[in-house]
Nucleic acid binder design. Structure first.
Lengths: 249, 249
DNA sequence: CCCCAATGGTCTGGTTCCGGGCCATTGAAG
DNA sequence: CTTCAATGGCCCGGAACCAGACCATTGGGG
């Protein structure tokens, strides 16, 4: 046994995490809270927007209405959301993004721990690959217009909404790949880094730099130039990652 | 409202699938069966291998022992697995891969439906990105040896085990990125295509071609040449995808 | 002014799932 | 030969979760 154990251990560690990872991540309630919170923080729903009706939302999330309501109640108590009754009522977003704070950033990074490099690698592979895939795809006029509109939304964004519109821009590229799975994975990767990205102070110089890179990405994608799209995205993500590491150092 | 509705719909469809996807996919039992079956089909556990003990496995899968046992019972009835009691007992794999069959392939593809292109895109982005990421990373002697050993295992594989060792080779590249999330995603992407890939008849010519590509990938990764790793992987995946589409046409 | 449809708010019965304890079986070690 | 530890086999009480029905509130349309 003393000779076989190390081999078995190695074999399991090898990819036990990849195959034998948990089937169910904790309880449905917590998962639902997290999902809604991220939807709001990613800017899918902005301040004052109405969430889908409870019955509808519960069905989309594959969770019972009771569980969803418990999650909404939690968000309400946290001041993120506010229910209104009656016809044309609903659940409305009241969340306002807190001002960036380097202390928050360091704390968030500490919480992530070793998962930071993991998340950065994951995001890099997904977003670079998605940009290239989108560029190599024939895009409809609607799709082209949609991408450009996301870009102009972002460029005209008031500082308060910048992060959320930035997320929406990047998620839009994922959508253009035509692979729902890929789009979902990009959203998930971004969710993991979201608290970190949101905590980065916004300097005019960095925003201007990012805007150039965003434009380069869009140009390459619309031109159908996969290599250029990949390079532009690599550059953009590298800049963001460097910025992040800078504030953490 | 008649004017806002279309917008709301579009807004939701936009990425409702990405953010508001189901929190829980069906019941724990079915999910567990699927996971175990895929672990076996991906070759993580070969014929005659012993699975981790029930208590251990249940903990890894984040599921109760009863639920796991129900899943194992199902696999046993399907002839995939066989329990043995007593110390040094356990649950042993009895699954043998069925011979490739084009009819199976077409049926599996029909079951996937439109998700086929989705899965292929997803896999392409992940595996190409992973190969590049692995190449750009400093690899320990152990890691280099591990990759080479996976390659030689594959090259010396008896036909019966070829598919499973092929999966293990590709998953090993994911591991080399140092990103558990990425490795997991690669495993998941491969799982989706697994039934399809397993149903492809194995022709000597194709296997020889694949072997060349595998060697090129390993060479590039070990040489730290990210561009070459990416190109070699792109070529390999394109060939596989073309083969697949060929049998479906 | 009244009605109605859509929404959030509440309750209940039933199912799944979990946590943990206990038993039965087996083969290696002493 | 006996002991013992690790394993699969079994069972139960409680918690989580679900499906669905019903109530309360609201604002627009008739």
């Amino acid at each position: 046994m003393d000779e076989d154990e190390p081999l078995d251990r190695a074999r399991l560690d090898w990819q036990a995490g990849a195959i034998f990872r948990p089937v169910r991540t904790g309880n449905a309630f917590e998962e639902t809270v997290e999902r809604l919170l991220q939807a709001i923080k990613l800017g899918v729903f902005g301040l004052g927007d109405r969430l889908p009706a409870e019955r509808d939302l519960a069905a989309r999330l594959g969770v019972s209405r009771e569980t969803l309501r418990e999650a909404l109640r939690t968000l309400q108590q946290a001041g993120c959301v506010e229910p209104r009754r009656g016809r044309y009522g609903g659940t409305f977003v009241t969340y306002r993004m807190p001002a960036p704070d380097v202390a928050d950033l360091r704390r968030a990074a500490r919480d992530l721990g070793g998962a930071l490099e993991d998340a950065l690698t994951y995001r890099h592979v997904l977003e670079v690959g998605a940009a290239e895939a989108a560029a190599r795809r024939p895009l409809s006029p609607d799709q082209r217009a949609h991408l450009e509109s996301r870009l102009t939304d972002l460029e005209q964004a008031p500082q308060e909404q910048y992060r959320q519109l930035d997320s929406r821009f990047h998620l839009a590229i994922g959508e253009l790949t035509g692979s729902p799975t890929l789009a979902t994975a990009i959203a998930e990767a971004r969710m993991r880094l979201n608290d970190l990205l949101n905590a980065i102070p916004m300097l005019d110089r960095n925003i201007a730099h990012a805007a150039d890179q965003h434009r380069a990405m869009v140009r390459a994608i619309l031109a159908g130039d996969g290599d250029a799209a990949r390079r532009a995205t690599e550059e953009h993500l590298a800049a963001t990652a460097a910025l992040l590491r800078g504030f953490l150092a």
